[in-house]
């Protein structure tokens, strides 16, 4: 597009078609999400727009599904469970993921390719296969239907995302800062906590956010290794979609979309901060 001045009329027409096509694709990407939001305010228990809604009749809209969501013990406790599981998972995955990324970013790392392949593999293996394997593994250990079981499983699944995100922020990380710290007589541990960690913190936090979101949304492994005490929001949604299609699900979905937007904006802020810290210029 930068070469606009070279373009002939037919090329410009192609340009317009191209833009139109891209617009269509963006619509295709985002529209399904947007449709849910107004429907969740439907006063009627339907999954579709009523004619009153299209006329913007104020009585056609209500907060009743949000109210029911909030008042229902089941949904509330699953929200608590989801937050608990996702938070602990994010912490565990971040600790392990940062170690992995730090090691892998060192040029002298032996067997880097193999180790990287192993660390990323949970992302690649089909989730049902992972879930079955974890189930066979957990069963004799008595970890089925326990919080530690779900958290271990989620840490496994989210670890690759943390490794990938933190590795990306370590690119361009100035290693002379570490050496400077060491030469000033600080212990390696101290250098890590006072030099390395603050610098890569935005990357670590984005990795943690990533882990949080993935654990918060995960349903298949929860279906295999959790029991009713670890009921999470996605599992409750899954049950709802297969049983009673109530518009509460749309309300929950809207809340989840809201959470995603907030986290995404946080991530964007972190990315900018990380770019600044690393001295990557803003273009």
């Amino acid at each position: 597009m930068a070469s606009g001045s070279y373009r002939t009329l037919s090329e410009r027409m192609w340009g317009w078609i191209f833009l139109l096509f891209c617009g269509g694709v963006f619509l295709f990407l985002v529209m399904p999400l947007l449709v849910i939001v107004p429907l969740s305010f439907n006063a009627q228990p339907y999954f579709t727009f009523t004619s009153e809604m299209l006329r913007f009749d104020s009585e056609a809209f209500s907060f009743r599904w949000y109210e029911q969501f909030w008042l229902s013990d089941k949904w509330r406790s699953s929200l608590v469970n989801s937050f608990f599981i996702a938070t602990v998972t994010a912490i565990c995955a971040s600790i392990l993921g940062v170690l992995a990324a730090l090691g892998l970013s060192r040029p002298e790392m032996p067997y880097r390719r193999l180790i990287n392949a192993i660390l990323i593999s949970p992302l690649i293996v089909p989730i049902v296969v992972s879930a079955a394997g974890l189930f066979f593994f957990f069963a004799p250990l008595g970890l089925i239907g326990t919080f530690p079981g779900v958290i271990i499983a989620h840490t496994v699944l989210t670890l690759p995302f943390v490794v990938i995100t933190v590795t990306a922020t370590l690119v361009g990380f100035d290693k002379s800062l570490i050496r400077a710290g060491l030469m000033c007589g600080a212990s390696p541990l101290r250098v890590f906590f006072q030099v390395t960690l603050p610098l890569i913190l935005p990357g670590v936090l984005s990795g943690a956010l990533f882990a949080f979101v993935i654990s918060f949304d995960e349903v298949v492994v929860v279906l295999f290794v959790a029991s009713v005490e670890q009921q999470t929001v996605p599992r409750q949604m899954w049950a709802g979609l297969r049983e009673e299609l109530s518009p509460i699900i749309l309300a929950v979905a809207t809340v989840l979309i809201g959470v995603s937007v907030v986290l995404l904006l946080m991530l964007e802020m972190l990315r900018r901060r990380s770019d600044r810290l690393r001295g990557v210029e803003e273009t």
Binding site: P32, L33, T48, V219, W238, L241, L245, L250, A253, S260
Partner: peptide, 28 residues
């Protein structure tokens, strides 16, 4: 990029739900 990342960050279940809402016989 945010437009691309938003669906990426939204729960798989939410996105599948939205397709049910769209594609149903009485759907959008």
């Amino acid at each position: 990029l945010i437009l691309v990342l938003l669906p990426f960050w939204t729960s798989l279940l939410v996105r599948t739900t939205s397709w049910i809402v769209l594609l149903q016989r009485n759907g959008v």
